[in-house]
Design a protein around this nucleic acid. Structure first.
Length: 188
DNA sequence: CGCGTTTGACCTGCGC
DNA sequence: GCGCAGGTCAAACGCG
């Protein structure tokens, strides 16, 4: 499969195709060349920016378990079927949620929206506290969590929950800025 | 004064 | 039912 040679394979980011955070994203399910029923991963494209993640990849499994990726291409995880259907069905009851990691010295990315911090909590077995933010736009209940990795304090995990009900607060190019901040690093 | 952060208390879900 | 951990609330406070 040609993605094995893809130069940006293994970006540790999770963004659903339907997210208005990345409205121009194209997301495809990948299947084994020799067995078209065997789902092996995802490929994401935003303009010239392209990433892929394999199902057997350790980071993929961590992201699925810890961050609750719920749907791709409009399909639920249950419908792409890996045997853990009940767990997947349980996950899809959660609100739309996705996460990505960036290498940054600051916790808060400038994603164009205004956020208000409403809590901070130390998490078991984590060196750094987790911060909780809500979108300040009236009627918009999007939340995000920010957690710095203990195994690599240069890496920040940002988890978004929900969809904005309003346009981005700042001028365009905000997503381009995030892509610039988003850094690819080898699998841990 | 308005808006955002801090932080301890409180709530809730889950495993035992 | 109990205890733990994660998530949220809200009063106090800081800053422009």
């Amino acid at each position: 499969m040609e993605i094995n040679n893809h130069p940006t394979l293994s970006l540790n980011s999770w963004i659903p195709a339907s997210s208005n955070f990345a409205p121009n994203m194209v997301m495809n399910s990948l299947y084994d060349d020799t067995n078209s029923d065997r789902f092996v991963g995802f490929k994401r494209e935003i303009g010239h920016f392209s990433t892929a993640e394999l199902k057997d990849h350790a980071l993929y499994n961590n992201a699925e378990t810890e961050l609750g990726l719920v749907a791709v291409n409009g399909e639920t995880k249950a419908s792409v079927g890996t045997g853990k259907k009940k767990a997947a069905e349980k996950k899809i009851r959660k609100p739309s949620r996705f996460a990505f990691q960036t290498r940054s010295i600051v916790d808060i990315l400038d994603d164009g929206y205004r956020w208000r911090k409403y809590g901070q909590k130390s998490v078991k077995n984590k060196q750094f506290p987790r911060s909780y933010y809500r979108c300040t736009h009236h009627g918009c209940n999007v939340k995000k969590q920010v957690q710095r990795l203990c195994r690599d304090e240069g890496v920040v995990v940002t988890t978004y929950e929900g969809r904005h009900t309003h346009p981005v607060a700042k001028a365009s190019d905000n997503f381009e800025q995030i892509l610039n901040q988003m850094q690819i690093y080898p699998p841990l």
